[in-house]
Amino acid sequence: MADSAEALSVLNIVKRYGDHLVLPGVSLSVGAREIVCLLGPSGCGKSTLAKIAASLLEPDDGTVRVNGVPVTAPDANRFMIFQEQDQIFPWKTALGNVTFPLRLDGVPDWRARGIETLREVGLEAAAEKYPHQLSGGMRQRVALARAFAMRPSVLIMDEPFASVDASLRFDLQDLLVRLVAEHSQAVLFVTHEIDESIRLAERIVVMSDDGAVTGEHTVPIDRPRDARSPVGSRLAHALFEQLSEHPSR
């Protein structure tokens, strides 16, 4: 199932917290130019798997590979957007936050790139504002811009659009699709929204309550997509059925 030479792959990942087996041996892979959505109910282990895929959490067993090479240390070219709300720095402006990794990396045109990326997420007017002056959804877009500006080859996004409204979410989804095509990125996108996964993903990986992968679906819809198309509706229905099956523990 997981092709180990893909841009990002996790193989047989096992993770326990004490006695609690969160991930019982999970495998998945993401190719370049591909968006893979990880869909599953709250608490099933999506964030845990995402952090392991970013090498920010050590699995008890299993390997993470980037372009087929096993990795254990995180790197800025495999960039994670966290579910946690406090990932941007309150002491830096929106622009300061976005350019922070660029400057660490020594990107020469960091300022121009920062402004350009803020414009893409619709925040050019807020460039000089501090996070406490922004709404929750605007802060989330700052985190998004910070990741996009780096143009990493692998993006790991943990429910990045959770607090933006529906129409803005559509725009940001389209932006993500466009950027992925432009920069040939591989994206592992965590969500628990069925429609979002259908709009975004090349493939949808479904996780069940017990942390196991219970299904994988390719999304056979041309872009730009309409999740409410007949094919989309059928897929949504199938995903809904799969998510509602509760495994016996």
Binding site: K51, L56, D75, M80, E84
Partner: peptide
Amino acid sequence: VSPTYHLVGRNLEMSPTS
């Protein structure tokens, strides 16, 4: 210092001093 900042710092490959 928020655990998330530590994660961000590690993701950006920052040295302990940085």
